[in-house]
Design a protein around this nucleic acid. Structure first.
Lengths: 138, 138
DNA sequence: TCCTACAATGGACAATGTCTAAGTCAAGCA
DNA sequence: TGCTTGACTTAGACATTGTCCATTGTAGGA
């Protein structure tokens, strides 16, 4: 995360308290917060930070490729700081818990030309759904 | 589609003009409309239909398993009437065009136990992204 | 230290979706 | 065919998520 801040500064990102706080909130494994959750946690560290700033900063982090937008949940976008290691997601259909997963195989190779409709296919996103241990035992 | 109406009636669904219109709008291959688009087309056929009814009806069709909710786009949910043939989606990153695709292989088998975190995995959703021929030539 | 371009603010606005109370009607039944 | 009833529809208020803009603040260089 200090890594992240260093990288950002190296890219000429102007460092402000607000941006630092947002970057700090987005640290860790299996972190997938909504913009609103990011805002709530940022406010805990820096009470006067505004919603617009959180949205702006998240948008910039996404453009810079430092954070991924994930749409596992159909309501709000979630932000995944694990952008430098390709991965997919496993989502609990009941409680919404999300884990990063690394399936074997290459789904891109599984799409025959006849199924590409002339598209240039550049990326694939896989979302597994199921029930997490907590919800299964409940 | 008459098929769809028959199936619904068979399940004890009370048939109304509004529901028929919504079902009619959602007919065809590679159809992936947002709730708002469904509403707009439904209004063309039945001007007094309300937004709430469209949402309700779409929700019921999804519960009944006759229509799938798709979240390819990060703004609005889309509704896919092609619910009886499993398939995945190919999305144009530029214009949002969506095609139904049928990759070979079984992504479920590609998720090792060690990557399942104790979840019971029941389903997988694959979204390919790329550029469609139209956007590529533009 | 001062300047200036870039960032943050907050509040209005937009898009999407949900809820409720009241009116309406499809379908079964006499 | 004409009731009856409970399910369906409606309009609009409300909620949530996200965007925009004019103004104010400030990081970082000269």
């Amino acid at each position: 995360m200090s890594d992240l801040l260093e990288r950002l500064r190296g890219r000429g990102w102007r460092m402000t308290a607000q941006r630092r706080v947002v970057a700090e909130v987005l640290d860790g494994e299996h972190v997938h917060l909504t913009a609103d959750e990011v805002h709530a946690r940022a406010v805990a560290k820096l009470p006067e930070i505004s919603r617009a700033t959180v949205y702006n900063t998240l948008g910039e982090l996404v453009s810079l490729g430092e954070v991924l937008e994930v749409a596992t949940d159909k309501r709000a976008k979630r932000y995944d700081p694990n952008a430098h290691q390709p991965h997919h997601h496993l989502v609990c259909a009941r409680c919404g818990a999300i884990r990063d997963v690394h399936p074997t195989g290459n789904p891109l190779a599984d799409l025959p030309d006849s199924e590409r409709f002339g598209f240039t296919v550049s990326d694939v996103e896989v979302t597994y759904r199921g029930t997490c241990p907590n919800c299964a035992s409940a």
